[in-house]
Design a protein around this nucleic acid. Sequence first.
RNA 1: GGGCGCUUAGUUCAGUGGUAGAACGCUCGAUUCACAUUCGAGAGCUCACAGGUUCGAUCCCUGUAGCGCCCACCA
Length: 696
Amino acid sequence: MSEMPTAYNPKETEEKIYRIWEESGFFNPDSLPPPSDSQKENRKKSFAIAVPPPNVTGSLHMGHALNAVIQDILIRKKRMEGYKTLWIPGTDHAGIATQNVVEKDLKKQGIIRHDLGREKFLEKVWEWKEKYGGIILNQFKKLGASMDWSRTRFTMDEKYQKAVRNAFLHYHEKGILYKAEKVINWCTHCQTSISDLEIEYKEEHGKLYFLKYPLIQNQESGIKNQEYIVVATTRPETMLGDSAVAVNPNDARYTDLIGKSVMLPIQQREIPIIADNEIDTVFGTGAVKVTPAHDLLDARIGERNNLPIYKVIGQLGKMTDEAGICAGMKIKDCREKIVGELAEKNLIEKTEDMTHNIALCYRCGGVIEPLPSMQWFLRMKELAEKATDAVESGAVSFHPESWEKVYFNWLKNTRDWNISRQIWWGHKIPLEGEEDVLDTWFSSALWPLATLGWPEKTKDMEIYYPTQVLSTARDIINLWVGRMIFSGLEFTGEKPFSDVIIHATILTKDGKRMSKSLGTGIDPMTLIEKYGSDATRFGLIWQAMGTQDIHWAEEHVVAGKKFANKLWNIARFVMSKTNMREIPKDIGTVNADEESGRFLANLEKTTLFLTKEIDEYNFGQALHGLYDFVWHDFADHYIEYAKKNDTKETQAVLSYALDRILRMLHPFMPFITEEIYGTLPIPNKKLLIIEDWPKI
RNA sequence: GGGCGCUUAGUUCAGUGGUAGAACGCUCGAUUCACAUUCGAGAGCUCACAGGUUCGAUCCCUGUAGCGCCCACCA
């Protein structure tokens, strides 16, 4: 005890302790020592988590930190309970996102991607990956994550490429992969297609133009007293590519006009008036100009009615030759010109102000143009059904359960998945003559499989698949979780994991999104530097009470630091009072007085509560309960009592309680508990990380 | 347009069909004796609002308001 300073110093301790853990090899389930008697039964079972691989675009943010701590708590508890416990680390190549940050970085040096050429550019990306991938993994260590580093994976490492190739070819042979020219979301900045899930919408003030399309009047038409049909649009420039006007078949205003034609102004093209059920009778005039090339709804209408496609907007966001008088112009200029022309011809009935959503790329913020493009698609129907069944049957469950709705909703409505991307950084499509790469989520979808060695029939697959827990943020439930579930089922016939934990989102104190670019982000590493890793973990979990978003408050990290110091001093006191050589194995043998009995009953109750709350993924509740017990019941109350009643019995209770508290607290605050445990004079003790979880 | 969540102390949040809680902050006091990163005491919440169910509602139901999020092709 005398060698323990009065204040706990995390800096000195944490690095040392992490090294001891790494050297022990206990993060790797293959090198666990033989189980204790109480661990024996569980050792037959495995408990595995594949960490959601952070993008190699930068460093860990608060969400990563919270998620890592949640997983580490589960892993550490299971390890103590005796399970073959495996936590697989890794990083994600993050296609577009990484390509973008590297491009930005090169731009500072005045270099453009195309100057370098594909090969040289990819070298630069790999350099970036080495640097930032390393930083990220090191940050996990700082957080105390007990990951098996010998199994570290990257979504583009050699074996992973094999897995991706295998998956692609499987779908291909199965016949649910097809190549087609369809209207997709095209990012004019990234110069690639992106999936529906990669779009962000931003509200913008704009105008709704009411355009008059002249009806073609001839003897057959029989049209009387009506010269125009009026269509409403926010994008007048796309009229250059119109191939029809559509109305709802039940719209009495237009019944007579269905089957008739209009003369498309400027282009001077005769186009039909058709009926389509998807037209909303309430919006605008109830008559819609149909541009099959540049709108997803119009594309469907076009397909149903066999309309010709006029591609008037090109991949660079400029008007094409088919745009006639606007060929080569920027979209904005074209709009001005078209509006001018139409106004001159008196073909604009009116304009109205309106706010509407414009589609932006979730990575670069560039404008998304829907346009026809030759792409690879994965047929989703059967896969979505598999993914739905897995959750409906209870094979996979969400925590909190309410997220299942979000999941089902997407699967029910999802369209075929555009999996090809026209960027450089990613998995190449494994077919002869194909230059494109795969959507980064195509490879992410294989994460739980590929990290265990699939498609090889590895020992790891046998032992650890399916994994148990997948913990992540809500915003990638569909982007990632759903796709992992159907991939797992498709390739192994088994779910990839059984429990999906959707953790809270960390916001700023006033409920705003944490964002690096807005300067509202907090760096978890700064907190660790300032308060220590245990305190940071404490602060994160303390606020993670459930589904409620966290309005981040640093004072809880301060509380964590104080708590660590409290624990330190509890240990100093207990060691000064007792002989820890004699921790009673079974406290039932201690002939305790009434006060001690009450305290011990509380200890049992807390153990029970804690175990239950962790098992139910209520981490905040678990920590609050434990904190309360340690500080108030143990320190404030029982230690004070033991000072006044310094007997063999109270000493036994003190040492018994300290030992157990260290075990219970270890998943939450692993460094300090290991450090204290290491100073206890107990013969033949092991590292706390593999000691028994207290049994009730 | 659909769906979801939230509203409880100054702040961040728990919680329960029957005296309303924690942490931090605040006030007052203590202190050689594990810890001042401490200890003790205390002030502070008509549980968003309005109805309803109930012997009893902060909790259950309905509605209203405010805030936030997700999904969707309002051209």
